[in-house]
């Protein structure tokens, strides 16, 4: 059962990645200067009493040496306990659970924008007249290079502030999802489409394409049935980039559009040095990477049976 063994190996490596991620984040946040107890108790306007400070320090083991804090954290983690948010005062799993749906919806919508757009544009524009390719490629480069914040703002100014077609922010309803998904999706599309067209153009030079055409196949079926399948593998390798763009972009998009989600939770947690939530989010992101990579790995075999990975 080589396939099962492969999954198992991958999972073990994945667990190692998760442990590494948890440890590195713990270390990084631990090393950031600043008294966490003071931070928990409200920052500059607060007047916490000495008893309250002492309680917080002992509750969160802040008065213990690093190794005790780290050991206790790992121990709890093994039992599935991510700890309690300093700021929200509820379990980290709940804090993330409350937000994950909104971000998943945003990411799915962004993919729903980016993938069809990428496929359509790349398939239709590969090996076309130079001026078509220049225009399309130019648009892609601009979209890929422009910070998400600017794309989002431009969309807001046009479609919300001026035309008032869509709400300016918030989580209510499908209409509120359109602009954020478009913002996030366009950034992903810009890069993916470039990669896919380059691949397609290479593939379209191949002899088997000529063979297909000589059999009298029309242009579009050749591109979709023969070329696309071969060009898809490098694009799938880009999945890691897509996941990163979606997770990273959600921080900006959710802030700009006042949306609930993991992105805004990340930002608020980093600002407030909410260590348990930060580590929780890093672990979640690492887990998403591990799973996505595993799935992609298996998909390679389906698309091209010749591919054998260790």
């Amino acid at each position: 059962m080589p396939i099962l063994r492969r999954i198992l190996t991958r999972l073990l490596v994945g667990i190692g990645v998760l442990w590494g991620a948890a440890t590195l984040t713990f270390l990084a946040v631990y090393l950031i200067p600043g008294d966490t107890a003071l931070l928990i108790l409200g920052g500059p306007d607060a007047r916490p009493t000495a008893e309250t400070l002492a309680q917080v320090r002992s509750d969160y083991l802040l008065d213990q040496p690093f190794i005790v804090q780290y050991g206790s954290y790992l121990g709890n983690l093994l039992q599935g306990d991510l700890g309690q948010s300093y700021r929200l005062r509820l379990p980290v799993t709940d804090a993330i659970g409350q937000q994950i749906g909104a971000t998943a919806a945003l990411a799915a919508a962004a993919v729903a924008v980016a993938l069809p757009l990428t496929l359509a544009v790349a398939v239709l524009s590969a090996q076309r007249a130079n001026w078509i390719r220049s225009i399309v490629s130019g648009v892609e480069v601009v979209l890929a290079a422009t910070p998400t914040f600017i794309i989002g703002f431009a969309l807001l100014i046009v479609f919300s502030f001026s035309l008032r077609w869509f709400p300016i922010g918030g989580n209510q309803g499908v209409a509120a999802l359109v602009l954020p998904a478009l913002t996030l999706g366009l950034a992903v599309f810009g890069t993916l489409s470039q990669v896919l067209r380059n691949e397609l153009e290479d593939v379209l030079e191949q002899p088997f394409i000529l063979t297909a055409r000589s059999r009298g196949m029309r242009d579009l079926p050749v591109r979709v049935r023969h070329a696309l399948r071969h060009a898809a593998i490098p694009v799938m390798t880009m999945s890691g980039f897509v996941v990163a763009a979606l997770l990273g972009g959600s921080v900006i998009v959710e802030t700009l559009f006042s949306r609930q989600g993991i992105g805004s939770l990340t930002l608020a947690s980093v600002y407030n040095k909410d260590l348990p939530v930060i580590i929780g989010i890093v672990l979640l992101s690492a887990a998403v990477y591990v799973v996505v990579n595993l799935v992609i790995d298996l998909l390679y075999t389906l698309i091209d049976p010749k591919v054998v990975t260790a």
């Binding site: 928990i40 108790l41 409200g42 306007d45 607060a46 007047r47 916490p48 009493t49 008893e51 309250t52 002492a54 309680q55 917080v56 005062r89």
Partner: peptide
Amino acid sequence: MRDPATKSPLAAAYIA
């Protein structure tokens, strides 16, 4: 308000 478990940054001081 003054229970340390409430982690009051303000109310507890007001009623000190």
